[in-house]
Design a protein around this nucleic acid. Structure first.
Lengths: 207, 207
DNA sequence: TAGATTGTTAATCGATTAACAATC
DNA sequence: TAGATTGTTAATCGATTAACAATC
């Protein structure tokens, strides 16, 4: 069963989780891989293969119980595991991420906000004070966050990420263009690169 | 040469573009696929294969001219082609996207901002007034935007995307959870799903 | 029981890597 | 020329799809 899960499967898991949530909201109780495949636009084979990386969640002749399957995938994604996160950089983007994201539903607790700029430090965002990055060491030693969300420019990210790793940060949600994974192969990184995405859109546009 | 470019190659193009930009900034003139492969953490074979989807940009015994290669990739990505875009939804996220993104460097011109909320309409964001979504039809018929950036909830996205497609929108930069590509296979879509990305981060975290 | 649908193995397809002749 | 490095073909690897026996 388990073993190493391929990147391709990991990429699809949140989508399954979302679609199952919708089905649940519609009041449905069970669904077959065939029916789900139509809805999601992928093959039934792929759905069954993907799910069987983690165990046999279905019942022959019946399909999958929606509620149960969503719960299982939530556990596989570790959404139920509490994860302490800090966010660095409260410019437009950092502010939007802090205010807009539903962290709690994924098990993340945003326990600290930091910025280097004097004019931003002290502001209140999402009921929390923005702290100075000068206090990062002290804060991390006291509160032991595991995740850092980087909403800062490339240049700043280089130094801050090294500092954070020394302070015990094990995972990064990276909105900067600094390639953390390349420089620190030992930590977990998920990138969100707006401009890469926008360039891909540009490429795909028909003339 | 050309033909259909695989999704895997498309995904890597913006990263090439970025790395070449850095090399240029460092004042370098030429680079071999081997040297670039070390820097990017991928194989030299892959780099040469990727580039040869579009043409022979290198010189045997020399490598690639950095400036020239970046320009070529920029053209492949159509960054030089002007594209008129409108943005729908100026909540925290939409506001951040409008203010934070460098659209112009990718050939995008943000020509209109729209929101349904009475309290947001009329505000000035990035030197532009936020217009009412009631005026969307009129605005599109007059200004002919090709791209729409959706920073609105799933429920709103369903109706708005159908409306926009009728108004001639051919491409979506989609931050909502509405699956445009599934429902409208004829238009170009690039999704940015924050919560999917955060869930993948959660999955990859070691216990 | 008969029909439905899974879990799983085998076949196919596509993407990545390796190898090397061409050539600057 | 000799060394370097490409463009490109062939080999390998992995992911997707098809098929079907197991079984609810």
């Amino acid at each position: 069963m388990a073993g190493v899960i391929s990147e391709s499967v990991i990429k699809r898991l949140p989508r399954y989780y979302r679609f199952l949530g919708e089905l649940k909201a519609e009041g449905k109780e069970r669904i077959s891989s065939k029916e789900l495949s139509k809805r999601m636009g992928i093959t039934a084979s792929q759905i069954r293969q993907d799910l069987n990386c983690f165990g046999g969640f279905g019942h022959r002749g019946y399909g999958y119980n929606i509620e149960m399957l969503q719960t299982e995938i939530g556990q596989i994604l570790k959404l139920d595991r509490p994860k302490k996160a800090i966010l660095i950089g409260l410019g437009n983007l950092g502010r939007a991420v802090a205010m807009h994201m539903n962290f709690e539903s994924k098990g993340f607790h945003l326990i600290g906000l930091f910025d280097a700029k004097e004019s931003i430090v002290g502001q209140i965002v999402r009921n929390q004070p923005v702290r100075s990055t000068d206090t990062l060491d002290e804060f991390c030693r006291e509160n032991l966050p595991e995740v850092a969300i980087l909403c800062i420019p490339k240049e700043a990210a280089e130094n801050i990420s090294a500092q954070l790793i020394k302070l015990g940060i094990k995972a990064f949600w990276n909105f900067s263009h600094y390639d953390i994974a390349m420089h620190h192969p030992d930590v977990v990184v998920q990138n969100i690169h707006f401009s890469d995405s926008l360039m891909r859109l540009s490429f795909k546009m028909n003339d």
